[in-house]
Design a protein around this nucleic acid. Sequence first.
DNA 1: TTTTTTTACGCAATCGATGCCGACAACGAT
DNA 2: ATCGTTGTCGGCATCGATTGCGTAAAAAAA
Lengths: 381, 381
Amino acid sequence: MTLFYILLEPIPAGWTLIFEEKVEQLIISNPFTQMKFGAITIKDIAKALGVSTSTVSRALRGSHEINPETKREILEYAERYNYRPNPIAQSLKASKSMAIGVIVPEIANHFFSQAINGIEAIAYNLGYHVIIAQSHESYEREVINIDHLVSRRVDGLLISMSAQTENMKHLVALQESGIPVVFFDRTSEELETHKVTANNYNGAYQMTKHLIESGFRRIGLIASANFLSITKERQDGYKKALAEYNVPFDEDYIKYCEWGGMVQAETEQAISELMNLPEKPRAIVSASDRLTMGTLAAVLKQGFKVPEDVAVAGFTNLKVADLLNPSLTSVVQPAFEMGQVATELLIQLIESKRPVTQFERRILETKLYVRDSSVPQKHKE
Amino acid sequence: MTLFYILLEPIPAGWTLIFEEKVEQLIISNPFTQMKFGAITIKDIAKALGVSTSTVSRALRGSHEINPETKREILEYAERYNYRPNPIAQSLKASKSMAIGVIVPEIANHFFSQAINGIEAIAYNLGYHVIIAQSHESYEREVINIDHLVSRRVDGLLISMSAQTENMKHLVALQESGIPVVFFDRTSEELETHKVTANNYNGAYQMTKHLIESGFRRIGLIASANFLSITKERQDGYKKALAEYNVPFDEDYIKYCEWGGMVQAETEQAISELMNLPEKPRAIVSASDRLTMGTLAAVLKQGFKVPEDVAVAGFTNLKVADLLNPSLTSVVQPAFEMGQVATELLIQLIESKRPVTQFERRILETKLYVRDSSVPQKHKE
DNA sequence: TTTTTTTACGCAATCGATGCCGACAACGAT
DNA sequence: ATCGTTGTCGGCATCGATTGCGTAAAAAAA
């Protein structure tokens, strides 16, 4: 008896090849391997119908220079065998990946996950897919991520910078190499491009104004790294409100957290410093989503009652703000819409035939929700 | 005077082409277009060093059959010009996309965003990128997403099914077509593959047991669609605890929410039905992350005091559970680890040379945090 | 010196889709 | 009857990287 072997791996040691034959097509009925034959290509269609691949390609994309009869046949066949063009081959040919990269500090933050929802909604509609990367507020990781996305040949990039990103060289280089970049949330003036933000200035202004009008005058501000655009804008809104009501501004009432809330110890330290000032603040405004919950937690942990000892208000997109103890006065950003707008602008840049020199700055309105955490005790109930 | 035009688009109507010439290379010094020249290929290296592309390719991947001297030159050149292999071309050649698809109900849910963190951590390390899609608890969207990911040629899929997915045909077909699938969180018995879940049974058991031991006997359960694996498992844990303490089980005390918390009206309706029972429950267990906050909100909204009128406890991965009013007794799942394990298993499947027939079921432990929402009033303070 | 082996590298095909040319037939126009 | 048109379609190169096969030259063995 003679056994025939079909080897899927190099010939095992000790075996000798004495006979070899090539076959055109191998039909395997092994139940384990009736797979990976789903992917039908343009070539298969061409062979099956006795036409060239060019004809198939043209028929599929509805070229007018194909006999309607031939076209019908091809379309029918493609339909029947569920043909899908291989996007990888298309990408190679067209040197477009149909992918956009998104870099955010972290997904597990409602502001960003909502923004990503908006990004995906638009991107998927326009045939792009979205690759998400997280910087975890680290400059290094951000650079690594960008490098990775570039080597993946993304067609464009949406970014909200890490709290440790002071230097924009990596982004400038990116843009110069022809990959469009759009900022959202956290932006920088060092790069000329589209920028999409919430109205941070007004959000902070409204929140501070509300606190002042509620009777608080000594108001602390806890913010992310001070070179971040959001920090600057929100701080300006805060100062504007103070000025408007003739509340003296005191530098000591502002604390910056370089880790932007990623490291709770840092937040607690900041709160502790604030609350140990000779004239401790009667209210605290948190100027960053990630810091807000940390601030509330730290204040409570350090034994202060909210709002009796100190009122708290802050930016947050968490839906449970009104279920907190106490329910939290907050400014909500239109995260979903910001993601949508940024993506529209980015894809516009990607698909623009001519270099774009006019860039937009889109500012979307925030919304203030007043709740118990900022209502002075005497007014309560 | 004669003008020469270099056209980037078809000849405008009214123009006639009278002269045409091809050039080898066009150097454009237009400041707008000094871009897209960053992408250096293997061919460029070959041309520059006067060797063939094969040699370059082999040198770059460290083949031994290349002269060390040549290899050094190539490596140096590649380094200097920051050469990166084009992953799209590699994908085409190898028919692997180095991408895995992830389908979750929604990103803006801490359980899933933490799981995605775990997924990314592993995937990036192993050179895969992650494409995320959301079903929004809709079966239709889930099917569309899968279709999209398949046409994108992902190498494998991680999925936590939507609350409306009763039918597994789409996943069976997927697996049969050779794309490995790994379940996490929500699984199904209709598919033989790796499955990664939290210990839902034990989590619900512990939580229910805790409530019983705290003195509650009439305990309601609010859950996702009843065909979901997590619903079944958690319900079983709940029943086990009841049985263990001889608390009679009453079918009326269980409410299923088909939208799994996506539609708050549904949740409120369920709570309302529970609380209108002749013998209304004294405690409610929420058996799904997304439902937990909705349950608490609904209970409070309907005017009940927690825990005085009714105690509440539930699954949730939200970090603010202890800042809620009242702080919420909860079961936390090891979401990050679940994502990691699922991804490891998936990539193992993808890279396995032989068909895998032994599948694992990994069950990771949950953790119960007892807080105020489940502590009977008399014991408080 | 001749033969064999080894070293080092090039050629060309391949992955799937696309698009520029050019071929060829049928047709009407001159 | 010859020529230009129009309609259809195939050949071939291309995108970038990889790899089996072949081979010239150098080294080793005979």
